[in-house]
């Protein structure tokens, strides 16, 4: 019952947002697009966290996704949004498949730090490549959609729609996946690897798969971010980007994909809100909000909802 309700709810919200898209104030729509792009990367992280691994390197694939979209437009002459995103999926898939072979042997904080190291190496490489604009990055083409080229501000409506469909679509698939055999296998890996191996499932194989999937989702998010903001830069691979993703996951709690998506949206709003009310000390505000959430909602905002549901 509950599973169907969740899927239905996600589908309803998705349709509602796509329909509402053109009528939202433009700034709100943009913040929403960025939030959903981040949500995609964090959904990937959710997969890993369910397996007991926290990556401080999702930024690596977020950045690859963004740069793939950028380079596809700049050097390959592509403008189709789907082709640009596909480029990111392919690139991140290949790279994560290789790095995953190495990383699937690591756990806990070592997995976190190692994944961060790769992300920082990419940051270093991009900061040196003047052809790709060095630390300034470069601008991304205005996308078209399967041959249709919306004019002016309408492009952003379409990008928003795409972000909604992708984030919620991925959310629904992921929701099902977490309840499948492979999904439960990952929780088993988190709880006890050796027992999983006795059951005839290779823990490393599970981890490798999750790592690749997480990478592809991050690349999708990075691609959307690139199309939305029209610019990519190496700071997408900087450790603070990955840190933000971990924070969002924590904010929402890992109980449900809906929690991740809501947390991404709330986080983006908190960020612009603190920037607005306190331009001098917005970082301090952000830090305080973070601590308050960790202190009072250890299982994320979702636990608040669950608690309220229980109370009623």
């Amino acid at each position: 019952m509950l599973r169907d309700r969740s899927t239905l709810a996600l589908a309803i919200v998705m349709v509602a947002l796509v329909v509402a898209g053109p009528f939202l104030p433009a700034w709100l729509r943009f913040v929403g697009t960025v939030a959903l792009a981040n949500a995609l990367a964090v959904l990937g992280l959710l997969l890993l966290i369910r397996t007991g691994l926290v990556s401080f390197g999702q930024g690596l694939y977020y950045c690859i996704g963004g740069y793939a979209a950028g380079v596809g437009g700049k050097d390959l002459g592509l403008t189709d949004a789907f082709a640009l995103l596909a480029l990111g999926i392919v690139a991140s898939g290949i790279i994560s498949a290789i790095l995953g072979l190495l990383l699937c042997r690591y756990r806990e904080i070592f997995f976190a730090m190692f994944s961060m190291a790769f992300s920082m190496i990419l940051y270093g490489l991009l900061s040196k490549s003047q052809k790709l604009g060095s630390t300034d990055g470069f601008n991304v083409v205005t996308p078209t959609f399967l041959g249709y080229a919306p004019d002016g501000a309408n492009v952003k409506v379409w990008v928003f729609g795409l972000a909604v469909v992708l984030a919620f679509g991925v959310g629904i698939v992921l929701h099902q996946h977490l309840r499948s055999g492979m999904g439960y296998a990952s929780e088993a890996v988190r709880d006890n690897e050796i027992r999983v191996e006795y059951l005839g499932v290779s823990a490393q194989y599970v981890v490798w798969w999750k790592y690749v999937l997480a990478a592809v989702l991050a690349a999708l998010g990075g691609g959307i971010q690139a199309l939305a903001s029209g610019h990519v830069g190496p700071e997408m691979a900087y450790w603070t980007t990955s840190g933000e993703f971990v924070f969002i996951a924590l904010l929402g709690g890992t109980a449900h994909v809906g929690a991740i998506i809501s947390a991404a949206v709330i986080f983006e709003f908190i960020k612009t809100w603190v920037t607005q009310i306190s331009p001098y000390t917005w970082q301090m505000f952000l830090g305080i909000v973070l601590l308050v959430i960790i202190m009072f909602l250890p299982k994320g905002l979702w636990s608040l909802l669950a608690r309220m549901r229980r109370a009623s």
Partner: peptide, 30 residues
């Protein structure tokens, strides 16, 4: 602060200290 958080997951503690970092950065500026 930290006293109130002992026993939490290692990764959560990383985020707690990230919050402290953000606060201290602006506090230093002030």
């Amino acid at each position: 602060l930290l006293r109130l958080m002992y026993g939490r997951d290692e990764v959560v503690m990383v985020l707690v200290t990230y919050g402290v970092l953000l606060i201290l950065e602006d506090a230093i500026k002030l």
